[in-house]
Design a protein around this nucleic acid. Structure first.
Lengths: 241, 241
DNA sequence: CAGTGGTCTAGACCACTCG
DNA sequence: GAGTGGTCTAGACCACTGT
C-alpha cells in the first residue's frame, strides 16, 4: 500500500497535507501557538513517507504558517501579521504594461564627491567619488516619479555613459550588479522645492516617497530617493495564506 | 561514496548547490533566460542524489530566481524586478515592540446599512447590515493612525461587543476569521477634514494611506482605510536574493 | 523517442530538546 | 533516554516537451 499514484494533476500528497493542516488551522483546531501533529503522526495518518510529510511542513514553515523547532515540534504560527510579497517593478516595464508611453528627462548626470550627509547612507568615505543623477520619469507625458540617485562608481564604472532616456538606471544597475540586497522605506511626505518644480506640482501636494539602499556582495551599489505625486502612484499587493 | 555527512551546521548540500548557481548567475555565466544545468547534470557534478538537486532548484524556482518548465529545462530568471516581503504588522504589537505605549480611542462603533458606494468594496448588497468602527490609535499619546473600518456581520457577529481599547480590530478579526486573503493599496494623500480633526493634524499634511480589503473563504470580512500622518509612519522592508 | 522536471518511497544518520 | 525536526540516498513512476 501507499503507492506513488497521484503524479501531478489530481493533487500531490504533500499538497493535500498542506491543505488539510491549513483547513484545520482555519477551523480553530490549531489556535496560534498550538502544537501541531509531528511528522511521524502525519506519516501514519496519511500513509505517506516522512519525506513527503516533511516537505509539506517545511513549505508551511517557509511561508510562515507554522513555526518548527528542531527537537521540540511544529507550532501553529500566530498569524498576527500579514506578510505580502511587494514587487517593486521597473518603472519602465510598469508603464508599458499599462499600455502607456514612458519617457525620461535627465536633469543631472555627473560625478561628485561624497558629503558628510551622504556618507552613512552610501557607506562610502567623505570625499570619495560618487555618481549622481536626477531624472524625472513621465507616463504619457505626466510626471510620475522624480528619481534622485547616487551610485558607487566602483560597482558601475560606466554609469555616466549610459543614455537614461533609453534605459532606466534600475535596469542598467541590475545588469552590471545583479542580485541585490535592498532596504527600503516607504512614507508619505512632501517634495522639496526643486523636486516640486521638476514634477510640476506644488510643494503642498502629498507625495509617496520611497528611499532604497542597495548592496551587492557587501559593497554598496546605490541609494535612491523616489518621489511620486500622491494619487498618481499606488503600491499594490496581495496576501494569500 | 556520497554519504550523508553534513547534517546541518557546515552547510547542507542543497544549500551549496543553490549558492553555487546563484554565484554563477551573479557572475554572468547564466544571463537572464539562459538554460541552466539539468538536474541530471548537477547530480553528477555534485555527487548527490536527484532529490537533493531537485530541492535546490525547486527553492530557487519558488523564490523566483529561476524558471522551471517541465519537459524543457531550468532557465535563469530575468531578475528585472525586485520582490520583497512586506510585512504589515499589527499596530499594537509594533508600538509595544518600540517600547512605547499604545492606546486607542473609539469614536464610532455601530451597525449601519451598506450604501451604494460601499457595496462594491465590501462585496455586500446595498441595504445589507454592516458594522462600522472609527478608531484612532496613539503611540505614546501621539495620534498615529485613523482606522475607518467596515466589517461583515456574518463573519464577525460579536464585533460590536469587543472592547477596542484592549484589543485592536485586526487582532480580533484574525481570531474569528483567520487565514485572510487581502488586497491592499498604499498611496500618499490627504486626510479628510474629519480625519484631520481626529488626528489633530492639518488637512494639508501629507498622509500615508493604506486601503485593505480582506476575504476569507470567499466571503468578504472587512475593508479598512488607514490614515497615517506622514513622517510618523514608515513601511520598511528588505529584499534578499 | 530521449530528455526534462514533479513526485514519491523506505530506509538512514544526525542534531537538537526535553525530562 | 525518547522524541523531535534536518538532511540525505538510490532507486522509482509519471507527465510533459521537444525532435
Amino acid at each position: 500500500m501507499a503507492k506513488a499514484h497521484p503524479p501531478t494533476p489530481p493533487r500531490a500528497h504533500y499538497q493535500k497535507i498542506k491543505d488539510h493542516l491549513v483547513r484545520d488551522m482555519a477551523r480553530g483546531r490549531y489556535p496560534p501557538g498550538a502544537l501541531m501533529p509531528s511528522e511521524a503522526e502525519l506519516v501514519v495518518q496519511f500513509g505517506v513517507s516522512r519525506m513527503t510529510v516533511n516537505r509539506a511542513l517545511r513549505e508551511l514553515n517557509d511561508s510562515g504558517m507554522v513555526n518548527r523547532v528542531q527537537g521540540v515540534g511544529t507550532f501553529a504560527a500566530p498569524m498576527n501579521r500579514l506578510a505580502s510579497t511587494l514587487t517593486i517593478r521597473n518603472l519602465h516595464e510598469e508603464i508599458e504594461a499599462r499600455g502607456h508611453q514612458h519617457h525620461a528627462v535627465v536633469h543631472l548626470k555627473r560625478a561628485e564627491t561624497v558629503t558628510a550627509a551622504l556618507s552613512p547612507r552610501m557607506g562610502l568615505p567623505v570625499g570619495a567619488p560618487v555618481f549622481h543623477t536626477l531624472i524625472v520619469h513621465f507616463d504619457n507625458g505626466v510626471a510620475l516619479q522624480c528619481e534622485d540617485r547616487y551610485v558607487n562608481p566602483a560597482r558601475a564604472p560606466g554609469y555616466l555613459e549610459v543614455d537614461f532616456s533609453q534605459i532606466t538606471p534600475t535596469q542598467y544597475l541590475l545588469q552590471v550588479a545583479p542580485l541585490w540586497q535592498a532596504q527600503y522605506a516607504i512614507e508619505a511626505g512632501h517634495a522639496t522645492r526643486k523636486e516640486a518644480r521638476l514634477l510640476g506640482i506644488s510643494v503642498a501636494q502629498a507625495c509617496l516617497i520611497v528611499q532604497r539602499r542597495t548592496v551587492s556582495r557587501n559593497t554598496p551599489i546605490t541609494c535612491v530617493r523616489l518621489v511620486h505625486p500622491g494619487a498618481l502612484y499606488t503600491l499594490q499587493g496581495q496576501f494569500k495564506p
